[in-house]
Computed example of a mutant assay.
Amino acid sequence: MERRELWEVIEEARRRAPGDAEAVAEEMVAILAALPRERIVAAAQPLWDLLTDAYRIDLWAAAYLINGGASDDGFVYFRGWLVAQGREAFERAVAEPDSLAGLPAVRAAAERDEDLEAPDIVSTVWNAHLKATGEELPPGSFAIRHPALDDWDFDDPAQVRARLPRLAALYLD
């Protein structure tokens, strides 16, 4: 499965479950589980490639700011949430993490002091394969290749304000 095809699955899931990342994950599982086994397995790598594209220090800082902290797992779940926002929002955030401040979901989360995470997005292909076949994904179905990240003190308000001014205005001011 090509990345473009995975985005089509994600967008269809978003149409079926607008505004709810966990419901998007459920719809993705349903859509993928209806595909032939080989196509389900083939969706694993493009999903992890998307999650890896978002494995950036500035996005980690954004997740840390938005969620009041972000462990390794928390950052994976935040990236899952970001995938569930759709291709346009995802690509904009990867290119410019401070653009997240313009998303209504981020603004609402800031007002309500809510975390933005979607752990079930990360396991959609796994769950779809299990649902369709009763079996786990075969070993070697995907590889995770995270790049090395620069160092950044997310607890330093001056660094956050300098690098993520719009998000800092929502979360620090």
Rank of each mutant, 00 (worst) to 15 (best):
R3K: 15
R3H: 09
R4I: 13
R4G: 13
R4L: 11
E5P: 02
E5F: 03
L6N: 00
L6I: 06
L6R: 07
L6W: 07
L6C: 05
W7A: 03
W7V: 09
E8N: 02
E8F: 00
E8M: 04
V9E: 00
V9D: 04
V9M: 01
I10G: 01
I10R: 00
I10E: 01
I10W: 00
E11K: 02
E12G: 00
E12V: 05
E12Q: 07
E12R: 11
A13Y: 06
A13M: 09
R14D: 01
R15M: 06
R15Y: 07
R15T: 08
R15N: 05
R15V: 09
R16K: 13
R16W: 06
R16I: 06
A17N: 14
A17E: 13
A17L: 13
P18F: 10
P18G: 11
G19V: 11
G19Q: 12
G19K: 08
D20W: 12
D20K: 09
A21Y: 05
A21D: 10
A21I: 03
A21W: 09
E22F: 11
E22D: 15
A23N: 10
A23E: 15
A23V: 13
A23I: 10
A23F: 14
A23Y: 10
V24K: 01
V24R: 01
A25M: 13
A25P: 14
E26V: 14
E26D: 15
E26N: 14
E26A: 15
E27T: 03
E27Q: 14
E27Y: 03
E27L: 04
E27K: 12
E27N: 04
M28A: 07
M28H: 01
M28S: 00
M28F: 03
M28K: 00
A30P: 02
A30I: 04
I31S: 02
I31C: 00
L32M: 03
A33I: 14
A33F: 12
A33M: 06
A33L: 03
A34K: 10
A34Q: 14
A34S: 15
L35H: 07
P36N: 04
P36D: 13
R37C: 11
R37Y: 07
R37N: 10
R37H: 11
R39C: 02
R39H: 05
R39S: 07
R39A: 08
R39I: 01
R39W: 05
I40V: 12
I40N: 06
